[in-house]
C-alpha cells in the first residue's frame, strides 16, 4: 500500500506540472501581443516593458513557465482585466460557493440515484423498473441548460415555489443543485442497478438468501460492501461533471461561484482569469481522482 501510495503521489505531481504548463500556454493561443491579453491596450510603453520583463515574455517558453510557477507558488494569479482585483481573491471568495453547490447536488444525486437504482434492482423488469430506467435515460441525454431552464420555468416562474435565481438562504441552492444533480443521479441509478443485479446473481448472494436472510438484509450485508469500491471511484470521477456543469448551472441561476465568474471572463475575453479558473478546476479534479484511486486500493487490496 505504501508503495502504491508513493507511486500515485509521484504521478500526481507530474500531472499537475503538465496541467500548469498547458494552462500557462493559453496566453500564447491569443493572437497578438500577450501583454495586451494580460492588461489590455491602455497601458503606457514603460509599463509594458516592465510587465514583459516581470513575466519573462522575452525569454523562451520554458523560462516563462518557471516565472509562471514562481508566481503561482505565491498564489499570485494576476489581476482580473475587468475588476482589477487580484484573481486569487476572487477565487478564494467564489470557489467555496461552487463547492457548496456541488456538495448539495452530490447529496441529491446520491439519494435519488442510489435509491432508484437499488429499488429497481430489487424489482427488475417490472413496470416500475422500466419507468425509472426510461426517466434515467432521458436524464442522461438532456443537456444541463435545458433541464435548468425547464426546472426554473416550472418551479420558479410558473409556480413560485422557489426563487428563480440568486444567492442566499437554503431555498436558493435547491434549483441549481437539482439541475446539477439530475444528470449524475440518472447515471448513478443505471450504474447502481446493473452493479447490484450482477452481484445479486452471485453465488454468495444465493447462499445468503438460502440461509434465510431477507432480500433487503442480504443487500445491505453482502451486496453493498461489494458494490462499494467501484461505486466510490465512479462517484468521485463524476466530480468532473459537476465542475463542467457548474459553469452553465451557475450562469442560469445567477449563482456567484467560479462557474459564473468563468462566464464574465469569457464575455470580456479575460484570459488570465480563465487560466486561473481552468487551473483550479483541473487541480481539484486530479486531486479527487488520486483520492479515488487511493480509496479504492485501500478498500480493495487486489488493486494495489
Amino acid at each position: 500500500m505504501i508503495n502504491f501510495f508513493f507511486r500515485r503521489i509521484a504521478g500526481l505531481i507530474f500531472v499537475i506540472i503538465g496541467v500548469t504548463f498547458i494552462v500557462h500556454l493559453f496566453i500564447h493561443l491569443v493572437p497578438g501581443d500577450p501583454v495586451d491579453t494580460i492588461v489590455g491596450q491602455s497601458v503606457s510603453e514603460e509599463d509594458r516593458i516592465e510587465l514583459r520583463k516581470e513575466l519573462g515574455l522575452d525569454k523562451p517558453l520554458i523560462i516563462q513557465y518557471f516565472f509562471f510557477m514562481k508566481r503561482l507558488s505565491k498564489f499570485d494569479l494576476g489581476k482580473s482585466m475587468i475588476t482589477q482585483k487580484p484573481i486569487s481573491d476572487i477565487i478564494i471568495e467564489r470557489f467555496p460557493r461552487t463547492i457548496y453547490l456541488a456538495l448539495t447536488a452530490f447529496s441529491i444525486s446520491l439519494l435519488l440515484g442510489i435509491g432508484a437504482g437499488a429499488l429497481t434492482a430489487l424489482f427488475p423488469r417490472t413496470a416500475f423498473d422500466k419507468t425509472i430506467m426510461v426517466i434515467a435515460v432521458l436524464g442522461v441525454s438532456a443537456p444541463v441548460f435545458v433541464t435548468a431552464l425547464i426546472f426554473r420555468y416550472l418551479l420558479a416562474e410558473k409556480f413560485s415555489f422557489l426563487p428563480p435565481a440568486g444567492y442566499g438562504p437554503i431555498a436558493f441552492v435547491i434549483l441549481p443543485a437539482m439541475t446539477l444533480g439530475t444528470r449524475s443521479a440518472a447515471f448513478l441509478a443505471r450504474l447502481t442497478r446493473t452493479t447490484l443485479l450482477e452481484i445479486l446473481s452471485e453465488d454468495y448472494m444465493r447462499t445468503a438468501l438460502a440461509k434465510g436472510l431477507t432480500p433487503a438484509r442480504a443487500l445491505f450485508k453482502h451486496a453493498f460492501p461489494n458494490a462499494m469500491p467501484p461505486l466510490i471511484s465512479i462517484l468521485i470521477l463524476d466530480l468532473a461533471n459537476y465542475l463542467n456543469g457548474s459553469v452553465i448551472t451557475e450562469t442560469i441561476f445567477a449563482w456567484p461561484g467560479l462557474g459564473r465568474f468563468a462566464l464574465t471572463a469569457i464575455s470580456q475575453r479575460d484570459v488570465p482569469s480563465i487560466q486561473a479558473i481552468v487551473l483550479v478546476m483541473a487541480v481539484t479534479y486530479v486531486l479527487a481522482m488520486t483520492l479515488a484511486d487511493l480509496a479504492r486500493a485501500w478498500l480493495d487490496p487486489r488493486l494495489r
Partner: peptide, 24 residues
Amino acid sequence: SRLIEIFLAFPSLILAIGIGTALG
C-alpha cells in the same frame, strides 16, 4: 501515456472553455 494523463486531468468542458476564450 504521460501526455494522455495530463489531458485526462482536465474536466472537458472547462478546458474547452479555456481554449475557446483564448482563441475567440
